[in-house]
Simulated assay, not measured.
Amino acid sequence: MRQAECQRPAAEFAVLIVDDSILEKTHTDLSALICTHWDHRMGRFVKGLNFVSLRYQAGELSLPIAVELIEKTEAVVDPKTQKTSAKSKFTKNEYLRAMLRVAQQQVRYRYLLADSWYASAENLNTVLELGHDFVLALASSRAVALRDKGRKNGQFQALDTLLFPDEQPLRVWLRSVQPAVLVARQVFLNKDGSQGVL
């Protein structure tokens, strides 16, 4: 990989892409690794192996560089139902931050790419502290301030209330993330004909 990095043109840059996936295992016995996980794509719990992966992408070169299996070993009792369930000792976001710290010593990259699940202030601050930038989806309800002074005074509003002039990005301030960030809005047509906004 180091050899491939050295051969890249100076203008070309690499990214790290984080994602979590579930490999369904409907006919496998339950264990700490093979258990139920919420699948947001399907809108229900599925039985399988859940993992967080980090992929290095530079031009046509694409390599997985880290993977963490989600192992649910901690017993949790729901106070309302008194039912016991299992959870992982670490969150997916904690796994991401650990993988980023290791990747920092292994590869050079410019951006972290991720979906809104990984857009917490703690993750964004970690990326910035490591000297990189990020391109992430944000939830439409994410609170932002239009000015740094507004952030300091607690003047926040939801992203979906902002007007984006001529589809240009807006410079906004997130709660607990020091520098301003650029937010762009993309409107697209879903397969079912409905309109989506990212």
Rank of each mutant, 00 (worst) to 15 (best):
R55D: 07
A14K: 10
E122S: 09
L69F: 14
L112A: 10
T126G: 00
K72I: 05
L69P: 05
D78P: 02
V144L: 06
N93S: 12
L136M: 15
G154W: 06
A86W: 13
R147G: 15
P169L: 11
N125E: 11
T161Q: 12
V187C: 08
P165D: 14
S120H: 05
L163P: 04
K72F: 02
D19L: 03
D148T: 01
Y109G: 04
L100W: 08
N190H: 03
A121E: 13
D29Y: 09
P9C: 13
K47E: 07
H40P: 11
T161A: 14
R108H: 14
S31L: 10
L96I: 10
T91M: 06
V177A: 06
S194W: 02
E12T: 13
L182V: 03
V18I: 08
A114L: 13
W38R: 08
E74S: 02
E122F: 00
V187H: 09
Y109Q: 03
F45R: 07
R2Y: 06
K92Y: 06
V18T: 15
L112F: 03
F134R: 06
L146W: 07
T36G: 04
P79M: 04
V107L: 08
V52N: 07
E122G: 01
Q105F: 03
V183L: 04
D160Q: 13
A32W: 04
Q7P: 00
I65K: 11
Q178Y: 07
H132M: 03
S140L: 07
G59N: 09
L124W: 01
P165N: 13
D148M: 03
G59V: 10
D133E: 12
A184I: 06
I70D: 03
G196V: 11
G59Y: 10
V46P: 02
V77M: 11
K191T: 14
L124F: 04
R8S: 14
T73E: 00
S88H: 06
S140A: 13
V127Y: 00
